[in-house]
Write a protein that binds this DNA or RNA. Sequence first.
DNA 1: CTGAAAGCGCTTACAG
DNA 2: CTGAAAGCGCTTACAG
Lengths: 336, 336
Amino acid sequence: MTDANVGGRVTIYDVASKAGVSTATASKALNDTGRMAAETRARIRRVAEELGFRPNALARSLTSKRSFTVGLLTDDIYGRFTLPVMAGVSEGLIDQGVSVFLCSVGGDPALARIHLDAMLDKQVDGIIATGKRVDRPLPIDFSAVPVPVVYVLTEGPAEAITLVPDERQGAREAVRHLIQRGCRRIAHITGPEHFLVVRERALSYRQTLEAADLRVPAADVLYGTWSEHWGHEAVARLWSFDERPDGIFCGNDQIARGVMDALRERGAAIPHDVAVVGFDNWEIVAEETRPPLTTIDMNLKELGRQAGLTLVRLVNGEEIEKGLLQLPCKLVVRSS
Amino acid sequence: MTDANVGGRVTIYDVASKAGVSTATASKALNDTGRMAAETRARIRRVAEELGFRPNALARSLTSKRSFTVGLLTDDIYGRFTLPVMAGVSEGLIDQGVSVFLCSVGGDPALARIHLDAMLDKQVDGIIATGKRVDRPLPIDFSAVPVPVVYVLTEGPAEAITLVPDERQGAREAVRHLIQRGCRRIAHITGPEHFLVVRERALSYRQTLEAADLRVPAADVLYGTWSEHWGHEAVARLWSFDERPDGIFCGNDQIARGVMDALRERGAAIPHDVAVVGFDNWEIVAEETRPPLTTIDMNLKELGRQAGLTLVRLVNGEEIEKGLLQLPCKLVVRSS
DNA sequence: CTGAAAGCGCTTACAG
DNA sequence: CTGAAAGCGCTTACAG
């Protein structure tokens, strides 16, 4: 038996010829479309299997107008936030045979344009725009893009579909956890106030305390930087007051680490004297603190998965409500 | 003036028709192939520009047998090592119009197979396999893959092209830096001995000391885990000996952070009493230590860029020497 | 139930 | 110098 084509991969023509049918029939058999004798269909499939036939997705896309490909643009390839998002997108879409183009464009509009055009030339079915801050847009405008766009963890236009973690709910879970542990004087040490998430979390912190009839402590919210150093320093500041907190809700896990270091240096037992809750569940930090850190997980992978699934629904022409979609965060209880 | 096709994107047919030539001529004009009157070429290009013509890459690939697409498989989407690699690949290839499919497969061979097949169906021109450990292969065998494969930061078969950082050179730079600073009793606190990089760095550490006629200290190499905690503990162990080191080369930046915390607690001034060098240049750690950490950067982005360029050369049929390619690391001097 | 024909949007020999 | 034709590998009406 000789192959019909020389050195090439096996095509639907090879399958059809070996099965003694036309390529049209072979196509229908393999795609389970049209009507034909069950026996014919089975035979064609058997032959395809034997030959190891894999359809050329490019050729298929040319007629079907679907490439089963989406583009993922990010301005933050190094950051740890968008990575789980990407993994979630990829994981959520592979079941549907969709592959993901990745590109990181930093803050460069020209580079973003080039990458976006390259993807559109390759006929992506849709675009996912993702970043590291929910209150900053990517350096490029997607409004003229001829395919659906979904925004994740970045600022999208008002009429777009944007997926973000539910920051308020996350902060509420954190503070409630501290209250349930018996804390009555709960402080909040967090990042720079110009971050939207910082303001959201701080607002929710206050509301949760008030809802529990707990007085907001004198020091209230301490804004600073996203660093261990700031956590350290903020504790020094808090400890200069008479009334010291018995619980600290931190704006991220790095701050929490600095806070815990400082508490240990002051001889405060964690969580006995002061309980600490972080934010991010950045495992490499949260599992390394002494004791391991209780914190809030933003479910970023799930966020990515939902974004991918939503995008595919848009591609399929489904009507989906526009606007901001906030997905719940999850408290991860460790020992702090 | 009316568009020839309804609601669709503009095709080469539209360009040809508006320019009053055949699609063959239009194609040649736009691709700068064939011979034709300069005026004709210019006119066709002008029309294409006016119409905003962007060639459909799928259609082009179908004839040209080049998709200008490569697949990137990783087992480590969360890790910070493969991410710069990916960014480098993407950055290195965009100039040639090549887009990158990303997929993370964890350790799952079945998932890897599915992703790989999906990419091959989409006619990727080549594959980059990347991971988090140079001494562990991905959970899938690429030997039957019909396109070139390049391995980066993962174990590939002997006859393959594999790119990794030059661990020995990196370690040498670190130790030499300490020697130049005047350190004479240099210890090495590092990760688990079953990591190849740990053994490579330790070997290079010893060779460099010997080459400088410096005695390897009693404690020699301390193997442990990749954690701050271990750095902390290792210092305690070293400080139990009579002769204490005046320089410490750490196997990674996290260990270095633990070491520095421990030194500070013991009242040792950094770098005056004890100088510290890390490994990885994980900026989020290295810039946060007190003082900021001098460390070794593995140039991972450049590694990725080289991998991408190498892959494209293979795709173009160039002959490239097989085997392990080690790219140099770089000392980043901060204040420790 | 099955096949011939046309077409997706390009490119590439081959004629003229 | 330019164009008609064939082809890349599929799918999709349309006939029969």
